[in-house]
Amino acid sequence: MVMQTSAAPAGPLRRMPVQGRSLARVHRMLDACAELVDQVGYDGLTTTLLAERAGVAIGSVYQFFPDKRAIVQALTLRNLDAYLDRLSKRITDGQLHNWWDAVDAAIDEYIAMHRHVPGFRTLHFGDVVDVHLLDEERDNNVVIVERLGSLLVEHFGLRDEPRLRFNLAIAVEIADGLIKYAFRRDPDGDELVLAEAKSLIRDYLHRHVDSEQAG
């Protein structure tokens, strides 16, 4: 399963593709990047390798991207959008009835990306490259917290307070660390570790978010 959106990735592109063929070529480059980072790692990735894998001229790569960091940044942003789109769809489809169900779903989708999305278990949401890959001024996990927090506030009526963002930040850091640990223990993700991660996060957020929102 490859989670991919049809829209052009934003941010690191030198110019936006305006024709369907150009957009398809950019996505081929990102798909090639995802495959290569799993095989050779970020350090081994080169624009030459990427052009060969994507079946494009090296000039086409530089037409849209200044360097390999920008390509990885675009791939990471595409993955983030796909992750949030899938989570939003589960919420709007009525599959999730409470905010803690949405938290469970957020963890499940993150695990699914590790298992099924090429390049994701190598790059995650960019920390391997730069802790500010998603946003020059904020840590990658802070960006995730802001986006998740907005979903919870919009769809479940939680009060948008600094304490909520703080609690979500703690939960995201715990989840990120334990899920990475689970995939170091087992290529498919150690189920015992993943279950503990979900239990810890649910208990933590119930204890803190419920009490804060009730106060």
Rank of each mutant, 00 (worst) to 15 (best):
A102S: 12
D101Y: 09
D108I: 05
N98L: 13
V129L: 14
V117H: 15
E109K: 00
V117I: 00
Y110Q: 09
D127K: 05
A102M: 06
H116S: 06
V117R: 10
H116T: 10
N98M: 09
M113F: 14
E109A: 07
F125N: 11
H124D: 13
T122V: 09
D101M: 13
D104A: 13
G119E: 07
W100C: 01
A102P: 02
F120W: 09
I107F: 06
R121N: 07
A102W: 02
H116D: 11
M113R: 07
D104P: 00
A105E: 15
D104S: 13
A106E: 02
P118G: 08
D127F: 06
D127T: 02
A106S: 15
E109M: 04
D127A: 10
V131C: 06
V117W: 01
Y110P: 00
G126N: 05
W100N: 03
W100Q: 11
D130Q: 01
A105N: 09
A105L: 09
D104C: 05
F125E: 06
D104Q: 14
V131Y: 03
D130N: 12
V117E: 15
V117M: 13
Y110H: 12
V128F: 04
N98R: 14
E109D: 11
R121S: 13
D101I: 01
R115K: 13
V131I: 12
W100K: 08
E109I: 13
A105F: 06
A102G: 02
V103Y: 02
V129C: 09
H116N: 14
V103E: 03
V103W: 08
V129A: 07
F125G: 03
H114K: 05
H124W: 14
F125A: 04
H114Q: 10
W100V: 12
G119L: 03
R121T: 03
V129E: 08
P118C: 11
E109P: 00
G126W: 05
A106P: 00
H114V: 01
R115L: 08
F125R: 04
T122K: 10
P118Q: 09
V128K: 09
H116P: 00
M113T: 04
F125M: 13
D127M: 04
W99H: 08
P118T: 11
H116K: 12
V103N: 04
L123E: 03
I111L: 10
G126F: 06
H124Y: 15
G119S: 05
T122I: 02
E109V: 15
M113D: 03
R121Q: 12
I107W: 02
I111H: 02
F120H: 10
